[in-house]
Simulated scan of single mutants.
Amino acid sequence: MITLIAAVADNLALGKNNDLIWHLPNDFKRFKAITSGHYIIMGRKTFESFPKPLPNRTHVIITRQKNYHPEGCIVVDSIEKAIEACPKTETIFVIGGGEIYNLAMPFADQLDITRVHHHFEADTFFPEINPKKWQLSESEKHLKDEKHLYDYSFETYLKIK
C-alpha cells in the first residue's frame, strides 16, 4: 500500500522556503506513530530540511543529483524507482515535498492528511484531491489550544476503485 502523508492547509499550502508554516505537536506525534518502522519516500529538499534522518525509518530519496549519497539512505532518480526500492508487502509512505506528492498521487492507495483549517502564504502546495477519485473515510476534528494555533482535522482518504 502506498500512502501520501501530509499536513495541508485549507488552500493546499504545504510550506514556504523548504520549511513548515505552522507548528502542530499532535501532527508530529501522529506522523511519527504512523511512519515509524516503515519506508518513507521523499525528495532531496525534504530530506535536507530535517536536522538528521528520521529514526526508525528507511529513507528513500528522489533526486536528479548524480553524486548524492547520504549515509544509510536509498537514493533513486524517479518515483517509480523509489516504489521499486521498497518491499511490496510494506506500507510505503510518501512524505513530500510538493513535486513528489504530484508524482506519487497516481500510485497512491490512501491519503493521510492533517488538514490545517487556515489559509497560508506558501510556495509549495499539495495536489488537488479529486472527489471522483478519492473518498473521505475518516475525519477527526481538533480545536486550537495552547499548543496548537489553528483548528485542524486528521483525515483519511481512500482511492475509489
Rank of each mutant, 00 (worst) to 15 (best):
I34V: 09
F125K: 04
L136N: 10
I61A: 01
N11V: 07
I40K: 04
A82Q: 12
G96H: 05
S137F: 11
A82C: 10
K133R: 13
L54V: 04
T124P: 01
M42F: 06
F126G: 02
T35I: 03
K159I: 01
P127Q: 08
T124Y: 03
I62Y: 01
P25W: 08
N11R: 12
F126A: 06
V60F: 00
I61R: 00
T58G: 05
V60Q: 06
G72K: 04
I2E: 10
K29L: 00
A85Q: 07
K29Q: 05
L143E: 11
T46G: 01
L103E: 11
A7P: 10
P70D: 03
K141D: 13
H142C: 09
D109W: 01
K144E: 11
F120K: 10
I5V: 06
N102Q: 12
P131W: 10
I129G: 07
I34H: 12
M1H: 14
V76Q: 06
E155C: 07
D112H: 11
D109Y: 00
H59Q: 11
N67D: 13
F126M: 08
F120H: 03
L12S: 08
L54T: 03
I34Y: 08
F126S: 02
F31P: 14
V76L: 10
A6H: 11
E80H: 07
I74A: 08
E90I: 05
V76R: 07
L103A: 03
K144V: 03
G15W: 14
E80G: 06
A85L: 05
L4H: 03
K147L: 15
Q135Y: 11
P55K: 03
T35N: 11
A13P: 04
Y39P: 09
A122N: 15
D145R: 14
D112M: 10
Q135R: 14
G96T: 06
F120E: 09
V76D: 02
D77T: 09
Y157R: 01
E128P: 13
K45G: 03
L24Y: 12
L111H: 12
V94M: 15
H148E: 13
F31R: 12
D151R: 00
P131Y: 04
I74R: 05
G97P: 01
R30D: 13
Y152G: 13
N130E: 00
D123V: 02
K159T: 06
M1T: 12
C73G: 04
H23P: 10
N11W: 09
F28C: 10
A13V: 04
R115N: 14
D19H: 05
T91R: 08
I160D: 14
L158N: 15
I61F: 01
S137N: 14
E99S: 11
Y68C: 07
E155L: 09
F107G: 02
M42K: 05
L24Q: 14
V8K: 04
M1V: 08
N18K: 08
F50N: 14
I34D: 15
F28W: 11
F28M: 11
E128I: 15
V60E: 06
H119Y: 12
I21V: 10
K88L: 14
Q110W: 07
F125Y: 13
P127N: 08
T124G: 00
F31T: 14
E140K: 08
D27H: 05
E48L: 00
Y39C: 10
F120W: 06
E48R: 06
K132M: 14
L4F: 04
E48C: 05
T63H: 02
G98W: 11
L143G: 12
L103M: 09
